[in-house]
Design a protein around this nucleic acid. Sequence first.
DNA 1: TTCCTGACTTAGCATTGCCCCG
DNA 2: CGGGGCAATGCTAAGTCAGGAA
Length: 744
Amino acid sequence: MGEKDAKGEGSAKHSEAVKLRRLSDHERTAGGGDGNKHSAKSTKPTEKSDNRRSHKKVKTPKMEPADNHSESVKQEPVDDDFAAKKKGVKRKRIKDEPMEGPSHSTSAPTSKKKNKQHGQEEESGGEAQKKKPKKKTEKTVKKEEGEHSAPKKPKKTKEEIEEARQLKIKKKEEEEQNRWRWWEEEKYEDGVKWKFLEHNGPYFPPEYQPLPDNVNFYYGGKKVKLSVTAEEVALFFAQMLDHEYTTKKVFRENFFKDWRKEMTHEERSLIQNLDKCDFGEIHAMHKAKVEARKNMTKEEKLALKEANQKIVDEYGYCLLDHHKERIGNFKIEPPGLFRGRGEHPKQGMLKKRIQPEDVIINCSKEARVPVPPAGHHWKEIRHDNTVTWLASWTENIQGSIKYIMLNANSKLKGEKDWEKYEVARKLKLCVDDIRNQYHQDLKSKQMGTRQRAVALYFIDKLALRAGNEKEEGETADTVGCCSLRVEHITLHEELEGSKYVVEFDFLGKDSIRYYNKVPVIKKVFKNLNLFMENKQPGDDLFDRLNTNMLNKHLSSLMAGLTAKVFRTYNASITLQQQLKELTNKSDNEAERLLAYNRANRAVAILCNHQRAPPKTFDQSMANLQAKIEARREQLELAKTELKQAKKEAKTKGSSDSKLQTLVERKKAAVKRCEDQLLKMEVQATDREENKQIALGTSKLNYLDPRISVAWCKNMEVQVDKIYNKSQRDKFAWAIDMTEADFVF
DNA sequence: TTCCTGACTTAGCATTGCCCCG
DNA sequence: CGGGGCAATGCTAAGTCAGGAA
């Protein structure tokens, strides 16, 4: 395997590189920046789009929401992805799998308070959800708490605080009790996602409220009273005036075009130039509103909060197979101006208001159908239990479908997540073979095969995304592995002491720049040279390859294998390795957590998960440094005092118990100071290293939670030190089932 | 075979919530 | 006892991937 190892050290380089990699906001979007970065930049849409692959998809009239909504229930073909379809196969999948080693403890239930009534194999069929008693209690408790703490604000007595604490604990336990332990149940047959589904439909944003009479729009200096429709769109723009979006040409043009579509004839003939429009008063009103909201009294805020809670209670949950589940996004997206990421050709377009008539409802036949808002009806009622969505509508910018789906802590999402990690673990078992294979393929006579091999090499080594082709002009110009163009890489026979270096510079998902210099093996390098022969910068690097072919190939090597599985696999395995490497039993908790974050960070760097440095970063860093400095002085002082005390104790004879205790006390003080200092220093390091790296994405989407849970157990760290509440909810299955000996 | 689209995951940024400090 | 600052949550855009039509 040889070069896989490069990854380890690679990641060190990597981390240096990461600084370079991030583009500041304007660089990112403008693709401008300073000269040296030729490729990704100079090639911006304008000049490049012309020579961009001619064979690329050409936009065809899309949209047309295909009005053929039949009442059909899709027939799911028998696929064979993950672990052979179990029709009623027990769900201890891990055990079923030929897992390595003695330690596939995975599915063994942890002790905790619940000793599942099933050893492992039993729990004979049936959808069975025996446990899960009272569901309601949860709410009651919450209410109670509200009534308790809110009215008596004066000052909390000790008892009250204690009481609140107890309540919290109780609530937590209750929640735990109520949790649907779906991972102990049997899986449904193929393709069936649920047997019963009932919900109240999506929540619609409030109607537009016309502007008050004292707020006006002006055109060419003259007051113009707009129609309600045009006014609403004008407000969308006015609200964004502080944002630099509204200064961009494309944004303004798209907005203006769409705005004019919403105008009456008269308005349209009057308003011909956006520059002559004055949204000042509207903008000011909006700012005032924001300000007013900030300055609401406690009572007002509370009232608002309660109103929101009511909405959540009514629309935020559904009933799925006898269990109440939280819905992830139960609100219909409000209208507004589309804000794409990066240099999006459609930025500024009007995102229309969705009406019930646009919405398809999905629920079971037996369920109560949600009531549409008064005077409205749904587009369609569907009963399709092979999908997981509760409602959907077609969005007007890209013509794609938006869905209302369940929260990440739901069975439907959790199960899928678990499955994802199981597939990745399966890859672990055959990854060596697959690597050997693509190394062989690098020498293939078939150009297509060679390209596939090189692409796979990148995907495996660099965790690149697959890179589907995109329609030109519909989205920002971004690429993944298979869609890389010649202009995105530069070959260096030798660079900075390494041979055969490939320099990548392209915009990936969300227009985040990927910049990396990677030494590759000679065969890969030579192949790249070959692929680039006689091509223009705008041509596809892998002209004989697309994601479909690649994935077809992969799935022939292993059931369920696709390009993104490599990302999951490499992310998780990296975490596991790094944790092993970086943590010591002898560390204190702060150091252990730093180690964990560093391991997490290594993955984030691998996956190129970036973030804009927080606006207040420098300031807060300085604050922290100041605090550290202060603490350091305090430590010095404490040390001096300790010395003093010791001296005194010595001179006065050690028999003096008072002095002895003083010495002890001073010692303790020093120790405390040291600990705190260390903790803060560690924190500072952590924060600095994290400046432009986002840990959340990998934690949430790529790292098998069982690795983290097992690490916590081994290191005696509380799980809630690494997972917040919603993460613990999402990973409840892993927290529940994972033992210390889990190995990915 | 290619195209198209539906369904679902992954992504970063914006907003909100909450804790701690002065 | 407000407000600054960060963490948590919300939002929705932008990917992946596969099935089925053309």
